Simulated assay, not measured.
Amino acid sequence: MILMYRFASIIAKADGSISDTEQKWLKELLKLSELDKDSQEKEESNKNDDSYKIEDNEEALTKHKSEATERIYPSLQSNAQEELEALIGLTNVKEEIKTLANFIKIQQKREAKGLKTSQLSYHCVFTGNPGTGKTTVARIIAEIYKELGVLQKGHLVETDRSGLVAEYIGQTAVKTNKIINSALDGVLFIDEAYSLYSSSDNDYGKEAIATLLKRMEDNRDRLVVILAGYTNEMKEFIDSNSGLQSRFNRYIEFPDYSAEELYKIFEFKANEFDYTISDSAQKRLISYFNTIVNKNDENFGNARFVRNFFEKTLEQQANRLASQSFLTIQQLTEIKLEDIIIDD
């Protein structure tokens, strides 16, 4: 169609001028050529776009389940020690990790001098409530291990029971091995790991544990595993299996954030997105976080709660400002007392 338009254009111009009728027909040909081009491009796009391919139902279901139960974090590509120090709170956690890193460095120097070295397990158990920074710190440890030459890639693969345990006999080992393969040369982070254990003989979590322990032995130079979950549940889980006991002897406890630290997290999020906090709003926030901490609710989400509360605060500020026609930078950036909505 494009070639036809070009040919017609040449013929029309042959006498040195284009009549109104010729102009009309050329415009129609141009429209048709553009429509034809768009149609060809869309057809080509459909051929190349996986979303247009017809997948086998079982393969599609497996793919979607995998996406929902596995998250891969690339290496931080930054100074891991600086990332660690920049975290709010977690003083004891930071000290534990520094000690671990220093021990690895000294053992490597002893080995270089031909001295005997102590056998070291790089695997860890992170205990504590949700939202206390366990996944973030796991990413930093993965990067530290990379910087020290313990791991080649230093990426983190996060999963849980649903990413390891299948619904039918014989499938759990395959599913677990697939996740482990993606974590080789990096860190496998299993959240709520205690959910893998069950006293029931029909539960396939035991198969996942057995597969994991075997791969930890077979790939001990390429795989680091971090298990995470509530403190008491994790202790019971590790104690339930001698293989877990022998491989996991480094426990790092993540405490709940204090009211002051929760406010600092809120303030950090505000600065990150170019917001300021008025004095009255600041006082309201600190008072609210003190009340929340004193309740000692076991379901409290710590930093996760603060992030959600911050987003609701921005929504409330948007509602307050939406009816105003002319807004200054100060108005757009300031979080005021009336934006802090506290549910009873």
Rank of each mutant, 00 (worst) to 15 (best):
residue 118 S to D: 05
residue 118 S to N: 13
residue 118 S to K: 15
residue 118 S to H: 11
residue 118 S to V: 14
residue 119 Q to Y: 10
residue 120 L to K: 06
residue 120 L to E: 01
residue 121 S to T: 13
residue 122 Y to D: 01
residue 123 H to L: 04
residue 123 H to K: 04
residue 125 V to R: 02
residue 125 V to W: 02
residue 127 T to Q: 13
residue 127 T to N: 05
residue 128 G to Q: 04
residue 128 G to T: 02
residue 129 N to E: 11
residue 129 N to Q: 12
residue 131 G to H: 01
residue 132 T to G: 02
residue 132 T to H: 01
residue 132 T to P: 00
residue 133 G to E: 00
residue 134 K to A: 01
residue 134 K to N: 01
residue 134 K to L: 02
residue 136 T to P: 01
residue 136 T to R: 11
residue 137 V to Y: 03
residue 140 I to N: 07
residue 141 I to W: 02
residue 141 I to M: 14
residue 141 I to Q: 03
residue 142 A to V: 04
residue 144 I to E: 14
residue 145 Y to A: 02
residue 145 Y to K: 04
residue 146 K to E: 14
residue 147 E to P: 08
residue 147 E to S: 15
residue 147 E to D: 15
residue 148 L to G: 07
residue 148 L to V: 09
residue 148 L to W: 08
residue 149 G to C: 11
residue 150 V to Q: 05
residue 151 L to K: 07
residue 153 K to V: 14
residue 153 K to Q: 14
residue 154 G to P: 05
residue 154 G to N: 11
residue 154 G to V: 06
residue 155 H to D: 06
residue 155 H to R: 12
residue 155 H to L: 11
residue 158 E to P: 00
residue 158 E to G: 04
residue 158 E to V: 13
residue 159 T to H: 05
residue 160 D to M: 06
residue 161 R to G: 07
residue 161 R to A: 06
residue 162 S to M: 06
residue 163 G to Q: 07
residue 163 G to L: 05
residue 164 L to A: 09
residue 164 L to Q: 09
residue 165 V to E: 13
residue 165 V to D: 12
residue 166 A to S: 15
residue 166 A to C: 06
residue 166 A to W: 07
residue 167 E to H: 02
residue 168 Y to N: 10
residue 169 I to Q: 12
residue 169 I to W: 07
residue 169 I to S: 13
residue 171 Q to V: 02
residue 171 Q to M: 13
residue 172 T to V: 07
residue 172 T to M: 09
residue 173 A to Y: 06
residue 173 A to G: 10
residue 174 V to H: 11
residue 174 V to K: 15
residue 175 K to Y: 05
residue 177 N to M: 09
residue 178 K to E: 13
residue 179 I to E: 05
residue 179 I to T: 15
residue 180 I to Q: 10
residue 180 I to V: 14
residue 181 N to W: 00
residue 182 S to K: 15
residue 182 S to A: 13
residue 182 S to T: 12
residue 183 A to Y: 08
residue 183 A to K: 03
residue 183 A to C: 08
residue 183 A to E: 08
residue 183 A to V: 08
residue 184 L to Q: 09
residue 184 L to P: 08
residue 185 D to M: 00
